[in-house]
């Protein structure tokens, strides 16, 4: 579904990604871990071109994202949802409007269809009573669940999660992770950058370890956590587990 070939990116003198190649299949739940500054978020943001890579390719459903024109890129992004660390809900809109804005304005649904969809999604994320509230009235965990609902409203083929629980108070991490688990069980293709090792172990179909702009090791979670090959991975796991 997403084929990444030799992705390379630098910001000035900083060489962030040094030739990343991988292939993400439909239905996979890829969890990317690694020390901060290893390039995992940048990698994720290259997938929907929030960062433009210097060289290499990202092929999504037959389109080269790195070379796509604006129209093609927007089509790709409609199918590739993204959930941010800081939620990035639209503060001037109600929760319902946050969810229905994109499907309606992009003419994917009528207002009525979108409203119906929003009701279903709000129920799914357990916030049906908040439809007419504004983001500022919600807790962090609730905000992130709404952000996920907003992404789901677009019926994406894949969702990218950029450290979705890092900005949350500890007691709210669980509700978001549970929702993500539910999505995984529904068969959603997911690429998740996170520090939650428990989530990686339990949900991932593949764990990917990045360090200094490269994928150092990847594999199914059991093998990865029980029997890491690379010394740097061992060192990292010994610190976080």
């Amino acid at each position: 579904m997403i084929r990444v070939n030799d992705l390379d990116i630098s910001f000035g003198k900083l060489h962030i990604l040094k030739g990343v190649t991988t292939h993400i299949q439909k239905g996979e739940k890829v969890v990317i871990i690694g020390p901060s500054g290893s390039g995992k978020s940048t990698f994720l943001r290259c997938l929907n071109r929030l960062e433009k890579p210097c060289s290499g390719q990202v092929i999504f459903e037959g389109t080269d994202v790195t070379q796509a024109n604006e129209t093609e890129l927007n089509k790709v992004r409609q199918k590739m949802g993204m959930v941010f660390q800081h939620f990035n809900l639209f503060p001037h809109l109600t929760i319902r409007q946050n969810i229905t804005l994109a499907p309606v304005k992009l003419k994917l649904m009528t207002k009525e269809e979108a409203d119906k969809k929003a009701d279903v999604l709000l129920k799914k994320v357990g916030l049906a009573d908040k439809a007419e509230a504004y983001p500022a009235q919600l807790s962090g965990g609730q905000k992130q669940r709404i952000a996920i609902a907003r992404t789901l409203a677009m019926n994406p083929d894949v969702i990218l999660f950029d450290e979705p629980t890092s900005a949350l108070d500890p007691e709210m991490v669980g509700e978001v992770l549970n929702l993500m688990k539910e999505l995984a069980d529904d068969g959603m293709t997911m690429v998740v950058v996170t520090h939650e090792m428990g989530f990686a172990k339990e949900v991932a179909s593949r764990v990917m370890f990045m360090s200094e702009g490269k994928i150092i090791e990847e594999g199914p979670p059991r093998e990865f956590f029980d029997n890491p090959q690379n010394a740097r991975v061992k060192d990292f796991l010994s610190k976080v587990l």
Partner: peptide, 21 residues
């Protein structure tokens, strides 16, 4: 910046992000 990124990531063009968000 996150507001621009949220708009883009939903598939809005630059102009649409500007107008709606």
């Amino acid at each position: 910046k996150g507001q621009f990124e949220a708009g883009s990531s939903l598939g809005f063009s630059y102009a649409q992000t500007m107008i709606y968000i």
